[in-house]
Design a protein around this nucleic acid. Structure first.
Lengths: 130, 130
DNA sequence: CGAATACTCAACCACATGGTTGAACATATG
DNA sequence: CATATGTTCAACCATGTGGTTGAGTATTCG
């Protein structure tokens, strides 16, 4: 498997790319408390409406936002599914940072001088994916 | 607060940007099963070594990978902290998709025709951030 | 109808990105 | 020492990105 999960590939590309921009993250945050029109989403920023519209299109392309055209205004709403996918993707690595915390915890609990290795923490955390 | 969390901003920019590339995600996956030299990380891909080196630099800039120069080869290892931050950031929206699942679940459990609303799930989940 | 509003589209710009190549650097090794 | 190996660096190129502006399309309103 190319990716460690069933996820199609370019989907995550778009989601993470959309998330990599602070303007778009702020828009998501705004959408987290309810539907917003394009103007409402654009209002907090100094950029032009067309500029904000592009950001919203990026969020749409990533599947993070859907649009409901209601009259002359476009209602945008959060679509959490893809966010959940990204979260799930990151969860794969969760064992990694919890393992590291466990190792640190264990190290702190036994202060024996014999156990003093150079600061090169666990290098092979069980290769279970090859 | 600009972001809904204490996270500095440009940090997440770099992390999500690093994650938006399939080559870099594959590199992280490789690093998840142990340390890798630059050549080892580059080997699965068709690109030049210099190209792969740039990707690794992007991962380093995002704080996802650290480098341990050992002789003439550079040992890279996963640094899960920033991944944990991104995961935590996404967790903010977790309530959002679980709410939606809860609503769907509730809808499926009571098949009363009076309760048949259009498929427009919760739009105002308590704005607690402004 | 005509005009204001909400928004998109297309063209354009400066700059970042992902990729290449060839040269340079540092370290092993014969 | 000379040479091979592992890696980076700098220059370059094509394309993508975030932003602008100005015009165009619907829709509502007087």
């Amino acid at each position: 498997m190319v990716e460690h999960m069933h996820i199609a590939g370019s989907r995550l590309d778009h989601v993470f790319h959309a998330l990599a921009d602070p303007t778009r993250r702020a828009m998501l945050q705004s959408l987290a408390s309810g539907e917003r029109t394009v103007s409402e989403l654009a209002e907090p920023f100094t950029m032009s409406l067309a500029g904000a519209s592009k950001h919203i299109k990026a969020l749409e392309a990533a599947g993070l936002v859907t649009r409901d055209i209601r009259g002359r205004q476009h209602l945008c709403r959060l679509q959490p599914g893809r966010l959940a996918e990204a979260h799930e993707w990151l969860s794969f690595y969760e064992r990694f940072w919890t393992e590291r915390l466990d190792a640190l915890d264990a190290l702190l609990r036994l202060p024996e001088p014999d156990n003093q290795r150079p600061p090169v923490p666990p290098s092979e955390p069980k290769g279970d994916d090859t």
